Computed example of a mutant assay.
Amino acid sequence: MKTTPIFLAAFVLSAFSVSGVALVAVTHHLMDGRIAENQRHAMLQKLESIVPQGAFDNDPLEDLIQVSARELLGSQTTRVHRVRKGEEPVAVILDPVVPDGYAGPIQLLVSVLQDGTIGGVRVLFHHETPGLGDKIEERKSDWILSFDGKSLVNPTPTGWAVKRDGGEFDQFTGATITPRAIVEAVKNTLIYVQQQGNSLFEPINTGAVVPQEAG
């Protein structure tokens, strides 16, 4: 007779344990979904900030391919978001890597409009020195906005450098390596897009990496 309360207590504890595990699993699933949605929304906002407002009606997060052009784009694979209005191409947005930042690799978003001009550049992540190299962030300075409207003919090839190297782009006081590397990476992205032309807008078929190593 004395064993019944023990079994009952064990049953109650087991029930609480199972319920707790289930609650944690459900909460984790819901939070994962919310985090993913927040990340998607934040990324979409970044993409929208570097193309003309109202200039597209597709979902660039879904209209996506991957290309391979390490020499120009800095990593083994690079994502290319295609921006369209109806069936007409508006821009491509790439996420090249700057491999030679002062404190390590820097990942960018670079929007190249259909006419070959830059719609905008943003920094996705970096490890540059606070107060010096981190001025590449839009919230720290407007330096990154100096690429807006630029192209391979504006400035001329020699102008695609920081002023210390005879180019048109500012460097930071006490920090030249970071802006120098980003200017080079943005120029290389423009070169890549020019080389590929309309092929970057071809319909998605397999979703596989497109082998487009530029020479």
Rank of each mutant, 00 (worst) to 15 (best):
R70V: 01
P5Q: 07
V193W: 05
R70G: 13
L132C: 02
S111M: 00
L61C: 06
H29R: 13
L44W: 00
I177Q: 04
L47C: 06
D32G: 12
R164K: 12
I177N: 00
Q194V: 08
E138K: 11
L61F: 05
P96K: 08
R164A: 01
G133P: 02
K140R: 15
A181F: 00
R180F: 02
L47S: 02
L30S: 06
E88T: 15
E128N: 03
L108I: 00
H28E: 15
L44V: 05
Q194L: 06
V186T: 06
G120V: 09
E88G: 05
A22Q: 12
F125K: 12
T176A: 09
A181R: 01
Y192N: 14
A161M: 01
E213A: 13
A36G: 11
P105E: 15
F169E: 09
H81G: 00
P155T: 12
F16K: 13
K135E: 11
Q39A: 10
V123R: 01
A36N: 10
I191C: 08
E128A: 07
S151R: 04
F147A: 14
L108K: 12
D170P: 01
I6E: 11
Q212A: 13
V51S: 09
R34P: 01
M43S: 11
P99H: 12
E87Y: 05
L23V: 02
Q76Y: 14
V51N: 03
F16M: 09
F16Y: 14
K150Y: 09
V83T: 00
V51P: 06
A22F: 14
D115V: 08
R40M: 10
G74R: 00
N205D: 14
F169I: 05
G131C: 04
E138N: 01
D134C: 03
V67F: 00
